[in-house]
Simulated assay, not measured.
Amino acid sequence: MTTAVRTVVPGALTVALVAIGGLHLIWAFSPWPLADKVTFTKTILGSDSGTMPPPALSALVGLALIAGAVLTLMVNETIPELGPNWLRTLGSYALALVLLGRGLGGFLLNSGATDEFQRWNTALYSPLCIALGLLGGVVAVAASKR
């Protein structure tokens, strides 16, 4: 179990956070991989507006997710650590809580949202955030015990 906690769990969390963060960075400039802005807003935002979020906001979310991946690698002692240990550990708990919060609270976002968003949020977005939050919790607890 300890090998999985030291390698598989932080590795999976890091890869997922970088991939999702990268998507958010792309969304600062484009609705890719979706066909157009209307499809994007229906599927990703749950609205029919066709108005993309401000590029700076999408980029900020993307960078925050990638920062969470870097923090995970620092807490796991895979890359050189910056700052005090207690701050990195606190940050890893905060990351886990934010992801769990989006996952559990995300089901509330279905109210009034487009059918496309409700379907994707129920099947993928919220469950993925819950899973990533749990992985983040495992990393944070393991880091606390070091």
Rank of each mutant, 00 (worst) to 15 (best):
L73N: 04
L23I: 09
K37D: 14
P10V: 04
A19V: 13
K145L: 14
P31S: 05
Y125P: 09
T39E: 10
R88K: 12
T14P: 05
D115R: 11
T114L: 12
G21T: 06
Y125I: 04
P33C: 03
L104F: 15
T3A: 15
V70M: 15
A59M: 06
R119M: 15
A12W: 04
G62Q: 08
P54E: 13
T2W: 00
G106K: 06
N85D: 14
I26D: 09
V5W: 08
K37L: 12
V141L: 09
V5T: 13
L134G: 02
N121P: 08
V141W: 06
I44P: 03
M74S: 10
P54M: 12
A131F: 07
A28I: 05
A19G: 03
G106E: 00
T89C: 10
M74R: 12
W86C: 10
L90K: 14
L108Y: 14
G62S: 08
W86Q: 13
P33F: 02
S126N: 14
G137K: 00
L73F: 05
L65E: 03
I66F: 08
P31H: 00
S92A: 15
N76A: 14
L134E: 07
G101R: 04
V61D: 02
W32E: 08
P55N: 05
G62W: 00
W27P: 02
F117H: 09
G101N: 10
V9S: 10
D48F: 11
P31N: 06
E81M: 13
L124P: 00
L95A: 13
G105M: 05
L13F: 06
D36L: 09
L45I: 09
A16M: 03
S47M: 11
V9W: 07
